[in-house]
Amino acid sequence: MSRAVLSVGSNLGDRLALLQSAVDGLGSAVRAVSGVYETEAWGGVEQGPFLNAVLIVEDPAADERGWLRRAHELEQAAERVRSQRWGPRTLDVDVISCHDSVGTEVRSDDDELTLPHPRAHLRAFVLVPWLSVDPEARLTVDGRPRPVADLLDELEPAERAGVSSTDLVLQL
């Protein structure tokens, strides 16, 4: 069994439907779904705002590479085009963290997959929804497990303020 935290985002097309397609595509593996948040694009590329959410998923057959493969399959099904780094996208699915069957956080540092996600602790659009579904969440940063709430508190106020709750809902 592995448990993963996935961040999903969309800023092209029917953004909510594309996020819902990720939930639907993961099916019974989804254990929790955050609320939907709207955020300004991150990374300096001029583009429209994103809808973002976090999913907690579990699957006895999946490991960290399996979650990455599923993330890519979901993006491919949403016809994501990777033409510009941090550019607009129909669906972005990032594996933020993964824990193995005994609850140990999986570490990976290769060209294909870095875990925990190397920039998650800098992104309020990941931390805010994650805390909404797991208030006790922890993420390893610089080799040390840290409460996600503390990581969020350390961000600039403008970064935190750029994440707005919506009335939109993803269905399990």
Rank of each mutant, 00 (worst) to 15 (best):
residue 140 T to Q: 14
residue 3 R to C: 04
residue 117 H to Y: 09
residue 78 A to K: 02
residue 168 L to T: 09
residue 55 L to W: 01
residue 115 L to T: 13
residue 18 L to S: 03
residue 103 G to P: 00
residue 64 E to R: 10
residue 99 H to R: 06
residue 149 A to V: 14
residue 6 L to T: 05
residue 21 S to K: 06
residue 21 S to C: 04
residue 117 H to V: 15
residue 56 I to E: 15
residue 155 L to D: 07
residue 115 L to Q: 12
residue 86 W to A: 08
residue 58 E to M: 12
residue 69 R to D: 09
residue 53 A to Y: 02
residue 122 L to N: 10
residue 171 Q to E: 07
residue 72 H to F: 05
residue 11 N to W: 01
residue 83 S to N: 07
residue 89 R to Q: 00
residue 18 L to N: 07
residue 37 Y to M: 04
residue 107 R to F: 03
residue 53 A to L: 10
residue 135 P to A: 12
residue 31 R to I: 00
residue 46 E to M: 13
residue 84 Q to I: 14
residue 28 S to C: 07
residue 22 A to E: 00
residue 55 L to T: 00
residue 79 E to A: 07
residue 73 E to P: 05
residue 166 T to G: 11
residue 15 R to A: 03
residue 156 E to W: 06
residue 76 Q to S: 07
residue 149 A to T: 12
residue 22 A to K: 01
residue 113 L to R: 15
residue 164 S to E: 08
residue 139 L to R: 15
residue 10 S to C: 02
residue 86 W to T: 11
residue 75 E to V: 01
residue 60 P to D: 02
residue 129 P to Y: 07
residue 36 V to L: 07
residue 80 R to W: 01
residue 125 F to V: 11
residue 105 E to H: 02
residue 39 T to R: 10
residue 16 L to K: 08
residue 67 W to T: 12
residue 88 P to Y: 05
residue 15 R to Q: 05
residue 132 S to A: 13
residue 47 Q to L: 14
residue 164 S to F: 07
residue 45 V to S: 12
residue 164 S to P: 03
residue 119 R to N: 14
residue 45 V to H: 05
residue 106 V to S: 10
residue 110 D to R: 12
residue 47 Q to V: 11
residue 166 T to K: 11
residue 104 T to E: 15
residue 44 G to I: 06
residue 49 P to S: 08
residue 151 L to D: 02
residue 113 L to P: 15
residue 22 A to I: 09
residue 132 S to F: 03
residue 133 V to M: 08
residue 132 S to N: 04
residue 117 H to N: 13
residue 136 E to Y: 03
residue 56 I to M: 10
residue 28 S to H: 08
residue 83 S to F: 01
residue 23 V to F: 00
residue 144 R to E: 15
residue 41 A to Y: 08
residue 15 R to L: 05
residue 103 G to L: 10
residue 114 T to E: 13
residue 63 D to S: 12
residue 57 V to Q: 04
residue 138 R to M: 15
residue 135 P to K: 07
residue 2 S to G: 12
residue 168 L to G: 04
residue 81 V to H: 00
residue 3 R to L: 11
residue 69 R to T: 11
residue 95 V to F: 02
residue 106 V to Y: 04
residue 82 R to N: 00
residue 130 W to P: 13
residue 60 P to H: 02
residue 98 C to D: 03
residue 79 E to N: 09
residue 155 L to Q: 11
residue 48 G to S: 12
residue 33 V to H: 10
residue 69 R to V: 14
residue 127 L to Y: 03
residue 143 G to A: 12
residue 104 T to D: 12
residue 151 L to E: 01
residue 94 D to L: 01
residue 87 G to Y: 00
residue 62 A to G: 07
residue 134 D to Q: 09
residue 160 R to I: 02
residue 102 V to N: 06
residue 18 L to F: 09
residue 140 T to Y: 08
residue 137 A to H: 08
residue 112 E to S: 14
residue 41 A to D: 14
residue 63 D to A: 05
residue 25 G to P: 10
residue 115 L to H: 14
residue 19 L to N: 01
residue 2 S to R: 05
residue 103 G to D: 03
residue 8 V to Q: 03
residue 30 V to E: 07
residue 169 V to W: 04
residue 59 D to Q: 13
residue 33 V to F: 04
residue 17 A to K: 11
residue 172 L to R: 15
residue 47 Q to G: 08
residue 41 A to F: 11
residue 23 V to D: 00
residue 20 Q to Y: 07
residue 146 R to S: 08
residue 168 L to C: 06
residue 49 P to M: 11
residue 17 A to R: 11
residue 93 V to F: 00
residue 59 D to A: 13
